[in-house]
Design a protein around this nucleic acid. Sequence first.
DNA 1: ACATAGTTTCT
DNA 2: GAAACTATG
Length: 465
Amino acid sequence: MADSRDACVVWFRRDLRLSDQPTLLAAADAAPRALALFVLDPRLLGPSGPARRTFLYGCLRELDAALGGKLLVVRGDPADVVPRIAKAVGAATVHIAADFGPYGRERDEVVEKSLAADGCELVRSGSPYAVAPGRVTKGDGGPFKVFTPFRRAWADHGWRAPAETGPRTVEWIDPADKDGGPRAVGIPDDEKVDAELPEPGEAAALRRWTEFLDGGVEDYGGTRDRPDKPGTSRMSVYLKYGCIHPRTILADLARQRSASAGTYRTEIAWREFYADVLHQRPDSARKNYDRAFDALPVASGKGAEERFAAWKEGRTGFPIVDAGMRQLREQAWMHNRVRMIVASFLVKDLHLPWWWGARYFMQLLVDGDLASNQHGWQWTAGSGTDASPYFRIFNPITQGERFDPDGDYVRRFVPELGGIPGKQVHQPWKLQDGIPDGYPEPIVDHKVEREEALARYERVKAARR
DNA sequence: ACATAGTTTCT
DNA sequence: GAAACTATG
């Protein structure tokens, strides 16, 4: 329909890399020249704080440099902005590098309709998942609700090998040459971020991945649950922004034979599972996946707000919880084991709604991803897919002693406890000399609140009948 | 007597 | 996952 037009638009969205980028192949097939576009959409950024935005800007800066300074960055609603740009460059097709994945499909349709009015086609050629959400289904076509069967079907489904692409597959159009479209706003300046952020961009992602593959993956099974050790891959933030694609990771893992490589692959599968769940049930980003949990009485009012503030600021009096919450502020990141511990504490000890904690995580975590974050929380709360049973209530002391056995993690992030040697640091109220100055008493009695949580859960059971 | 390894129970 | 319970030496 538009063979006379020789240009297209490559709309970078969540896949901010150039290698292994099938969108570029699709674009090169469609037209010899392409305009590289990134839309700063306030809704795409979601409830992100300065850490996430600044990391994103770093990725954009690297991409722009790799494209010879030709990345067009505009602000606005894609449904309005994208068609105007497509028209300005005379594009017959707009190629999205990675669709939204689990959410925002309706919004894509709005853009699609708007483009179609100008005879321009929207082409989705990628996904930030090995298997796009919605593709792995049960025999009857229904979605999986339990992780393990999903993982098997997901592995059986398979995915293609990384694509051989480079930045020179198309000729990039200088955005200054286009007339009539929205004006470039450029990449915003970095915001003031107190946390120390990981290095943004594709090159950093590949460096980190190589480092993990060569050094850490063999120990992954043994040390991934140890917040006091650098045992995790730290790849989450790069996956979130598409600085690396999971299929690159999976292809490298397939060359390894170790059990640890299999464990790591399972973690990738969890990411894909939760994306699939959110795709099937977009409402589960805000509401209980299991609606029987709507009957769970949650704390509210002034007392709840005060407890929530203590949790956020890392002054609950439970060292492992406080260390985690302070790591979150210092690094815009928290070790996954500790995420589970602080989440369990918020839900089961403080009886606060899981979505309070989930929203706070999304604001601060540099790797915050809606699907993984919300469903990770729902897993802990017991309201999610294949969730942990509600009676699984983490004991913050036992968890601390088991996963931070020498107390190094706590001392690193809670300086008030810096002088207490060994694992005693997990129970400062038992010290002979009393709790060190400046460190709070426990704000709740875990044993009491555990019983309270179980009692509240009876309401959920009743609601199911 | 008592520590502890193993088992059951809990939506 | 943790607590209560049971068996064992």
